[in-house]
């Protein structure tokens, strides 16, 4: 049979559509399952109480708080460093060999398995620097993990700003720094902010990097300093599904925890989009 151009196009589009629908489908099934199995567990007590009876009862409050602390701590570390490096890479670094090297290395860093970051964090922050298993060590490790993404987003967002705006500013006698601060960065900001929030989403779900650096198996007490351990949602989920005191009895709690984690990531993603749109509008009308 001879297929003509129109038919070929039709078949191709059907295929494309099928593939994209199946991706969405799988996503919906996963979400559906988690919601279905987890929703019954969600209650105010579940969100505000510590685990009880060998983590087969009670809530996950300490793990939520722990995850929030880790998000905050890793962001405090990775945002300033990552944004500044991104600005350097995009605006200052000439395209010489050193920069190409740095770029390749940041890119490969984002391909390093997260468990390797965990081991590295343990050896450097926990042992060598003596922070012990702590929020500090965990935040730094997670920060390292998200650094490539932050650098990359910043760099790409800045590069997407039309060169004409830089020239317009420089031609008025503005310095390069003034140009970046007053024109280029504000224009890139909507994309940068959404990249940053996506990196938070990534950080909040990681288990391996916190395994050896901060996460506590069971610690109902909230931390009182950055040198304390905390529980964290992904690790808690891992523990109660694989090595809890009674895995079967914790099953519902596991799904409830998963639902909370997924919700946090989902909210962050939606937030990323909203903020990007909000700031894109604001940048234009400001």
């Amino acid at each position: 049979m001879n297929i003509n151009k129109q038919q070929a196009q039709k078949i191709a589009f059907i295929l494309f559509r099928l593939m994209s629908f199946s991706v969405v489908g799988v996503l919906l099934i996963i979400l559906g399952l988690i919601i279905y199995r987890g929703i019954g567990t969600i209650s105010w007590d579940f969100l505000s109480q510590a685990p009880e009876q060998g983590m087969t009862k009670g809530g996950i409050y300490p793990a939520i708080i722990g995850t929030l602390y880790l998000i905050l701590g890793s962001s405090l570390f990775s945002f300033p460093i990552g944004i500044m490096s991104g600005i350097f890479m995009s605006e200052y670094a000439a395209n010489n060999r050193l920069i190409v090297m740095i770029r390749i290395m940041t890119n490969s860093l984002s391909g390093v398995p997260s468990v390797v970051f965990g081991l590295f964090g343990m050896s450097l922050f926990v042992n060598t620097l003596g922070f012990g298993d702590s929020i500090l060590a965990g935040s730094l490790t997670l920060g390292l993990l998200s650094l490539p993404l932050v650098i990359r987003t910043t760099e790409e967002s800045l590069k997407a700003v039309d060169y004409a705006y830089r020239e317009g500013s420089l031609a008025l006698g503005a310095s390069k720094l003034q140009t970046i601060r007053n024109v280029v960065f504000p224009m890139a900001f909507p994309n940068i902010i959404s990249g940053l929030i996506l990196s938070i989403g990534r950080v909040s779900g990681e288990t391996a990097p916190i395994l050896f650096t901060v996460a506590a198996y069971f610690l109902p007490k909230l931390p009182s300093s950055i040198f304390d351990q905390v529980m964290a949602l992904p690790y808690h989920l891992y523990v109660i599904s694989t090595s809890g005191t009674d895995i079967e009895a914790s099953r519902d709690i596991a799904y409830g925890t998963a639902l909370v984690l997924v919700t946090i990531v989902l909210i962050l993603n939606i937030l990323a989009n909203l903020l990007r749109r909000y700031f894109a509008k604001k940048v234009k009308t400001n």
Binding site: D162, A164, E167, G173, A174, S175, V183, N286
Partner: peptide, 22 residues
């Protein structure tokens, strides 16, 4: 320039820009 390249700022701030950065 060839293509108009006003900054994404208010009309006032566009004109004031050169003065401020100097």
């Amino acid at each position: 320039f060839q293509k108009p390249n006003p900054f994404p700022k208010s009309i006032f701030d566009n004109v004031a820009y050169g003065l401020r950065v100097n």
